[in-house]
Amino acid sequence: MQTNIMIVGVGGQGTLLASRILGNAVVRRGYDVKVSEVHGMSQRGGSVVTYVKYGDRIWSPVIDRGEADIVLAFELLEAYRALPWLRAGGKIIVNTQQINPMPVITGAAEYPRDIVGKLSAQADLTAVDALELARRAGSEKAVNVVLIGVMAKNTAIPYDEWLETLRDTVPARFLDVNLRAFALGYQL
């Protein structure tokens, strides 16, 4: 048994914390796990990709094309970019936020239209306005935890264990906001 989850987004969106929450949640279940992170230059507003793999024995920390069970995307274009990594029968969860990359900002390229429509024609897609839910939870910065909440429902890990992981992983002063954000995502 092995589960491969790919988290994609734009540097600064909090994908790193999301992958750490997920990693800590699966460790509690006694799985072998590897979490591959992104630090440094590529973090600065560029495309960022982190991988979480868990199961009986994990070797490579990286997910190959066609091997992701779940793509958790923090941004529309990045979800589209990750499509080749999704395995047959895999699921994409996407935050409907659009963040323009520099070639779009300067008018050198166009942001693809109707990504949600195009992705749902090719894959099992759940689209969610995580930014709105994060605002409702009390902070725009909680987008990552809203999305973890949406994804959590697609795993075998019970609700209470997710809450315990959040308590262990998230700094105390942000815990309340994040617990609300997680619940809003989970209840979708």
Partner: peptide, 20 residues
């Protein structure tokens, strides 16, 4: 050979790192 994968039907704009 790896199994074929699904790909976007269009060329996607790159997202290089930028100053914050």
């Amino acid at each position: 050979e790896p199994a074929p994968v699904r790909t976007p039907a269009e060329t996607l704009p790159a997202r290089p790192p930028v100053m914050c």
